[in-house]
Design a protein around this nucleic acid. Sequence first.
DNA 1: TAAGTAGAGGCGAGTTTAGG
DNA 2: CCTAAACTCGCCTCTACTTA
Length: 714
Amino acid sequence: MSKKKSKTKNIKVENSTETLSLSSKCNIEGVFDDDTETESITEWKADEMMLLFNNIQQLLPKNDLGKYSTTLEKGIDWNRIRLPNRDPDECKQHALKIMKQLRQHRTLTEMLEDAKKFAENPWKSQQTHRINHPDLPKKPLSTYLKYFLEKSPKLQALNPTMNMSEIAKLVAEHYAKITPKKKAHYKKIYDEEMVVYRQKLLEFKSNHPEIEFGSNGSRRFCDDQKIGPIKPRTPFQLYKDYRLKKYIEENGEEIEENEEMLKIVVDAIREAWNNTISDKKRYKFIKKSLKDQERYDQELKEFQESNPKFVAPKLKSVLTKSELELKLKYEGKPSRPPRSGYTLFSKEMLKNMSDIETNERMVKIAKIWKELPESERNRYNDEATKLGAQYLQDLNDYLKNLPEDDKERAFLEEKSYYNRKVHDIKKKAEQSFVDNTALIAYQMEELKRLQQLHPEKNTADLMNIINNEWKKMNKDQKSVYMNLAQSIKSFVPNKQVMNKLINENDTKLIKIMKTKNEKEEELFRLTGIKKPRPSGFNQVCHYILVNRHDLATRDRLRFASERWRSLSQAKRNAYNLLAKRKFQCYKEVIAKFKENGRLPTEEEKALLEKYSVSDDEINEDNDENTKDNDIDDGEDDDDDEKTEKNGIETDSSTPPTPLQTDQIQNSTVAGSKRSITEESSQKKLNTKKFKTGDGLLYEESSDETDEDDDLLSE
DNA sequence: TAAGTAGAGGCGAGTTTAGG
DNA sequence: CCTAAACTCGCCTCTACTTA
């Protein structure tokens, strides 16, 4: 299989004292084994090549950072290369052919150095000249290597757990023991081959007087001993053992005798493993391999107990990435959904684009995507959303059924994806909150105006008109309401969003979040220490919400907002800073408590106390009194960020129900314009009232105060 | 130093995903 | 929609050994 490997690359010309003079007109007539590559190289003369490479050098792009072949393909203006009797494409193809045989992973600038050296004296065997003449005869293998070739497949079959280095050691061991008679036998073959080789080499030299024979590079060696338990076997190795055993049973011992046959059989087995074996069977060997891993872990543990100094070798996982995926798939793990409609689309498109060049595919897909009618794109987007929701559901089911030990690991594997999902949902919900709130604000304002203008019309008709007006408004016209909505959103915690998620997808992540909060609750029960409000603004809100029962909830929040804005910047900074410090302090306390149940020390309690702002302080009406502010050290407040982070970790003591847009709109009208709504009962209105406007977050509350407090103190 | 071998690991380039 | 990071692919080198 790999016999053909580096055929043209690693053949090197034998060292020789004979040094042939550099000939600029050398005409290489050698023939490559692979005849498709032959003609153009043999046609080109050294000076011609030199000219070509010098030409290319003139045209190198400024930033030559890509792979040389890419640069040759795309970075060079071949029309500007003019060689007598050569068309640009010929030049390009020739340059590509030569360079391909020098080194693979380099930039064109670097490769040109090698190429020019090559052109100076083609086929000279030196490190930079790795192309060897295809006609150069191969030196016969040494007696040891002949023996190695014969013995190593057998020893591999007998010692399937050994790697090549170990096999080589074993071969050497065997070789040291073979009888002089056998050695002489190998030597005889070698000598015979050597006679032929010398003859061929002479012929070669006479055919190619232009070729200079040089010396070669060096190699590094290092040694590491391998002791300890036998390494776990990979699924393929196990499969190979199984097939080989079966083969030997069926065909007797022959396979041992015939190394060629063995190689063929092993190759066939590999082929089967890679291409034809069913996933089900593969999964069987994957399981076996994992069992062997367990065996290894156990043996290693025991071995290390008796050999404490033994450092376990770093092993790669017995499973390849795809094997692991297969395993998880078989165990019911859902595969990740496409992230967007576009992803879904491109995935679908890619299936039928194998004929198009790789780097053009994505460009093409993007183009088609853009040209797709909106309805089509929406179809993909909807499908992607559906798949996403399905995935969360499937993942949930999968996690639920896992053994307790695996749950955590499996969850962590999906965590980043999950967080992303949470992020997406949150962003979406935030946006729809802002949109809804803006519309509500507009509706309220317009309704009032239109009712005065057209007292004869009923509310439903007016609302229709208003909604149509809104639809026709452009961004600028809406901006006032959007800004208002945004500012309302900014002091409303993200709790609803999270709760929506919790209700819809009761998965491990949320369970972890819940346990987090269970700990917080426990700490509160034990010490009375509550999770502090994460920002100065939240403190103000809290204070107003608790103390201003004379106002409706949304009015209280509005009032809180007004109060906050009326504070001087210095004071706001000061409150934020305190809140930040307190929050940090609390975070440390809760971390310790979670870790080992340690309760806060007196010192920590005192610190938490120190960072608290008293209600009285907030209640001070004369907000201009910032002079006596001794806690302001001018630090920027980043409570927005804090609030947000905090929002994610929020607890879920009050599971809310997500609101539908129309529901919100309807209730808004009802709530905000109580007087004009049809004869609904007062009680109903009262309940609904809290769903409206900024009250979006406080739906269906019977005990406002507690809930408000809860919501803002998260 | 290079020849043989198979698997591990490195690397550059190409893709996909996360996250803003 | 964009960028950075992570991942994949496929090629390349290294590893053990001896001989010339």
